[in-house]
C-alpha cells in the first residue's frame, strides 16, 4: 500500500501544483482540449441530428453513420492522423471529434424523432411554423435525451483526452505516460485518479444542468444507462 501513499504524496506535494508541468496547468490543458473537441462536435452533430430528426428523412443513414464511427478505435485514429499530419493539436482533436460525434448525433436524432407525431401535428395545427415546431416543441421535449447524448460524449472525451499525452501533448495523461516511461507507478496512479475525479465532477455538473433545463413536465426521460 506504499504505492497509494506515494501517489497521495505526489498529489499533495506543493511542487506538483506549480510550474508549467504542475497539476493546474495540466488540468487546464485537459479541459481545454475537451472543450475544443466538444464545441466542434456539437457544431457538427447537433444541427445534423435536429435536421434529420425533424424531417424524419435519412434516419437510417444517421444511425448507420453513428454506429460506424463508434466502431473506430480512437487510439488508432490518433496515431494514424499523427503519422499523416505530423504533431500538433489537429490530429488529436480530429480523432476526439470523431469520438464525440456519434453519441451527440444519435442522442439528438433519436430524441427529436421520438417526439410523438401527434404532438407535432398539434403544434402545426395551432399555426406554428416549421421553425417554431422545432424550437418550441421538438427541442424542449427532446432536450433530456439530447443532453443525455451530450453528457455521454463529454465523459468519453474527458476520459480519452488522457491518451493525447501519448503523442507528446499535455493534459493529465502526461503524468501517466511520463510515469510509465520511468516506472513511477505512484505518478501513474495519481494521474488516473485525477482524470477520474475530473470525470466525476464534470458528470455531476452536467447532470445538474440536465436537471435544471428539463421541464418538470417531462418527468423521467433521458437518464443515462
Amino acid at each position: 500500500m506504499s504505492l497509494v501513499a506515494d501517489a497521495a504524496q505526489f498529489l499533495t506535494d506543493p511542487a506538483s501544483w506549480s510550474g508549467p508541468s504542475g497539476i493546474p496547468q495540466r488540468l487546464l490543458e485537459h479541459v481545454g482540449y475537451s472543450a475544443l473537441t466538444m464545441v466542434i462536435a456539437l457544431a457538427v452533430a447537433v444541427p445534423l441530428g435536429l435536421w434529420v430528426g425533424h424531417t424524419r428523412r435519412g434516419g437510417g443513414v444517421v444511425v448507420g453513420l453513428a454506429g460506424a464511427l463508434r466502431a473506430l478505435p480512437t487510439l488508432g485514429l490518433l496515431t494514424l492522423f499523427t503519422l499523416l499530419m505530423g504533431l500538433g493539436l489537429l490530429p488529436p482533436i480530429l480523432a476526439l471529434v470523431l469520438l464525440a460525434v456519434p453519441p451527440i448525433l444519435s442522442g439528438t436524432y433519436s430524441g427529436i424523432a421520438a417526439v410523438s407525431p401527434a404532438l407535432v401535428d398539434a403544434a402545426r395545427s395551432m399555426g406554428m411554423t416549421e421553425r417554431q415546431v422545432l424550437t418550441r416543441v421538438e427541442i424542449p421535449v427532446a432536450l433530456p435525451v439530447i443532453l443525455g447524448g451530450i453528457r455521454n460524449a463529454a465523459l468519453q472525451v474527458l476520459a480519452t483526452v488522457t491518451i493525447v499525452a501519448y503523442i507528446n501533448l499535455g493534459g493529465l495523461g502526461r503524468y501517466l505516460i511520463d510515469g510509465l516511461a520511468v516506472r513511477d507507478y505512484a505518478r501513474m496512479l495519481g494521474s488516473v485518479v485525477l482524470v477520474a475525479v475530473l470525470a466525476l465532477a464534470a458528470d455531476a455538473v452536467l447532470a445538474l444542468v440536465q436537471r435544471l433545463v428539463t421541464s418538470p413536465g417531462l418527468a423521467t426521460a433521458g437518464d443515462r444507462p
Binding site: S116, A118, L119, D121, A122, A123, R124, S125, M126, G127, M128, T129, R136, V137, P140, V141, L143, S215, G217, L218
Partner: peptide, 23 residues
C-alpha cells in the same frame, strides 16, 4: 398562409396534443 390560417381557428384533437413541457 397556412400558419396564419391555423392560428385563426381553434383545433382540438383526440389525444389532447398538449405540450408536455409546458404548464
Amino acid at each position: 398562409p397556412a400558419a396564419k390560417l391555423r392560428r385563426s381557428m381553434g383545433y382540438v384533437m383526440q389525444q389532447s396534443g398538449l405540450l408536455p413541457h409546458r404548464t
